[in-house]
Nucleic acid binder design. Structure first.
Lengths: 202, 202
DNA sequence: GAGGTAACCAAGCAAGCGCTAGTGTGAACG
DNA sequence: CGTTCACACTAGCGCTTGCTTGGTTACCTC
């Protein structure tokens, strides 16, 4: 049922489903389209998933689970000052957003299609992830690195980051890390010389 | 066909459609649901709109049209310095986002459901709106009010603003103007309460 | 080689979908 | 008074939807 005990086959099917959900949207993706993409017939799909809803839940769970892992690892690996942690979180967010892009686009834009039960379960995963952000933002505020309302700042930052999936071009000149650094530079009260040179570079 | 020569009845129907599209999503909203909400039978709907697509286009056109009007008025009415203009745009954006919330949520999250023809037509409206933003951001950059890449800054700001529809509670303690002011404060290089010296650079 | 199991298929059902055709009605207009 | 027109209705067509059913393989285990 959950992301841990999924068969390899199911994982692969989940990946393909995520791709289709992004291309077409959840509602317009039919079980027949899913089956065809997977190289099986539509009836066989229900051997792997109870119903279409469960496919959506699997996609979102996989993505959110990975985001949590990547963010935790990034925080563990980075230096222990507020600026480094803030930058690490922003980088980790964009890294997972674009390596696991399909799953995250689905999580961001098709969440409401989840049945209430699945939504409740997955909310915990998402809350755990957001808690990491809030902690990092709080530290940055306490250190005077940024200022403003903790709630608003975190929402604005997450909004700016999440919205990148609507315009960012991975084939363009900018790396996800460039974006993360630029965003951190933008919101920092006291711009460092490094922030300026980053902004000028291109 | 367009937002100018629409009958009052059609405008009212468009408003109701926007509400349903937000509640259920475009794909899950059936013509029967729309008709019931409007107090007519499903067949009668096609007297007012050519097809379901046209309803979506009408909703989005109405919303984008209003956004453009409000933004232009806000820029006309405000003082002529970069900071005031930046603040005015942010306020106008949130004002239209929440007075016309349904239409804008549809425009933001159901744009892809538009048929190519309608999408092409409405893109011009949206581009005109974004051009206002780019001009204001450019002025703010030139004045040293903010710094960073003009492209990235505008994307980040619009992302942060647009994402508010996902979390902002109109019944909460904060007004849209509060949000706008806080966002502008967050990205401004020179915070008022902090006599930071950075006029030297750039 | 018997039994179990994971993976698949063919066929199709019941419900719901967008949309059309043809008709009725009351108000407006010459 | 007759015509027109906006607006609504009834009835249903043709198609697609998510999902079920009953059965068939291929492989693993004892």
């Amino acid at each position: 049922m959950n992301v841990m005990n999924a068969s390899p086959r199911r994982k692969e099917l989940t990946r393909l489903a995520a791709q289709l959900f992004v291309q077409e949207g959840f509602d317009r993706t039919t079980v027949r389209m899913l089956a065809q993409e997977m190289g099986i017939k539509s009836g066989s799909l229900f051997h792997h998933f109870k119903d279409k809803q469960e496919i959506l839940a699997a996609v979102i769970e996989e993505g959110t689970h990975n985001a949590l892992l990547i963010a935790r690892r990034a925080l563990d690996d980075c230096e222990d000052d507020p600026e480094a942690r803030l930058r690490a979180m922003a980088r980790a967010h964009l890294e997972t957003l674009f390596t696991d892009r399909n799953a995250h686009v689905v999580a961001l834009f098709e969440w409401r299609r989840l049945a209430p039960a699945a939504s409740a379960h997955l909310s915990h995963l998402r809350d755990a992830y957001e808690a990491l952000w809030v902690a990092v933002i709080d530290d940055a505020l306490a250190a005077g690195l940024i200022h403003g309302d903790r709630f608003l700042v975190s929402r604005f930052v997450l909004g700016a980051l999440n919205w990148t999936v609507r315009w960012y071009d991975p084939d363009g000149p900018r790396t996800p890390d460039d974006l993360a650094d630029e965003l951190v530079a933008m919101i920092m009260a006291r711009q460092s010389e490094q922030g300026d040179s980053l902004a000028a570079h291109d």
